[in-house]
Design a binder for these strands. Sequence first.
DNA 1: TTGCCAAGTAATCGCCTGATGACTAACGGG
DNA 2: CCCGTTAGTCATCAGGCGATTACTTGGCAA
Lengths: 219, 219
Amino acid sequence: MSSDDVTDQGDGVTHQAQQADQADQPDGHRRRDAAATRRALLLAARARFTRLGYDRTTLRDVAADAGVNLALIKRYFGSKEGLFKAALASAPRFLGGEAEFPHDRAALAGALSRQLAAGAWAEFGEHPVLLLLRDSGDEQVAELRRRALEEFGRQVLEASGAAPAPDALLRAELLVALGVGVAVVRSAVGLRPLADATPDDLMGPLRDIVDGLLGPPSG
Amino acid sequence: MSSDDVTDQGDGVTHQAQQADQADQPDGHRRRDAAATRRALLLAARARFTRLGYDRTTLRDVAADAGVNLALIKRYFGSKEGLFKAALASAPRFLGGEAEFPHDRAALAGALSRQLAAGAWAEFGEHPVLLLLRDSGDEQVAELRRRALEEFGRQVLEASGAAPAPDALLRAELLVALGVGVAVVRSAVGLRPLADATPDDLMGPLRDIVDGLLGPPSG
DNA sequence: TTGCCAAGTAATCGCCTGATGACTAACGGG
DNA sequence: CCCGTTAGTCATCAGGCGATTACTTGGCAA
């Protein structure tokens, strides 16, 4: 019953080809393609889970979005929980999209500006960190979540220049919290002008925050 | 799916007096006090909604927590949605607990440190802003949410000293997002050391953020 | 062609949940 | 003391959900 197939990585396909995969056959009936079905389910699930959360996402809706039979979710992912974990595993990480992780404060501010801007992640509908925050009630997921954000914090810390301050990690985690907060506020509240901010809009303020937080105003 | 085993820390009968309202009569049963019943329901509902969110909160559990019959929820609040709105209305606002809203940056940093620290809001179990973020799917609630956070942003802006910068509001809202993020990260992830930070721990970093964000380092 | 297995389908099942409506019992004015 | 008002109880209903099982269909190998 436990779903151990959290190991999907074939999601490089992205972009909404999900339903096209299924029913674009001219003669009417679909092809049998397990991999495509799996991908379509994962894509639909990721979108729903990210946008609506765990509880409000129904397997029937996911199956419908993917143009696939409900029972196939059980076949490929075992359960709703399994589907959720697979969706989680297939999602890009916060700051993971950058070709190279920023090494200094300026680069960090730039990366944050890009990833927290309004248009970013448009292909997912929402910032992927929101998916990470969705609560399935599973303890295993909570652990996964913690680890992901811890790693993010560690990366921020590294980019800050390894300050000797004893509260350096706390400061890095405050920056993580800021990122989470921006994503949440935009998604759940639509607070403007923050919700509409472009990378350029964010660059200045974020640089000020990063400079203020991560280092004494030394050179 | 399980209803109350999610983040259960033995809370079926939470701390606090909520049940005492109901059954503290020596002879066994306490009777017929509409106001007390209403209060008990509201208290229980606020705790569950804040901690578990809208969907995972069941009316049966709320009624049980309050030591009250399920049907009374309908009597006093009409529906689950009604109960949620009442709980929302009865919750303290972010930064609303301060005797007086901070007028300058130092006071703002101090207030934030206090309200974002680990122990704060212990009587609610979680930061009240989390209740505000809980999604009941109701459009009316979304509007209420937006207004509350907008007001918070405006207050922050005011405390910043009315900078002439055109992106002053954006900067204020970033501070709002930081507050939301800290609450969310602590509640949903337990990221440490942030989750355990005391007001003193937060004071330094937050002052740096506020100074960096809200004003040029001028005197 | 034939046979076999994987992919896909249809139909429920059992359970939980929010919502009711009819009933009972306490309180208090007269 | 009586009786109307109202707080509180009980039983149940209808709907939606995740899960599951028995079945059908398509495709490939021999």
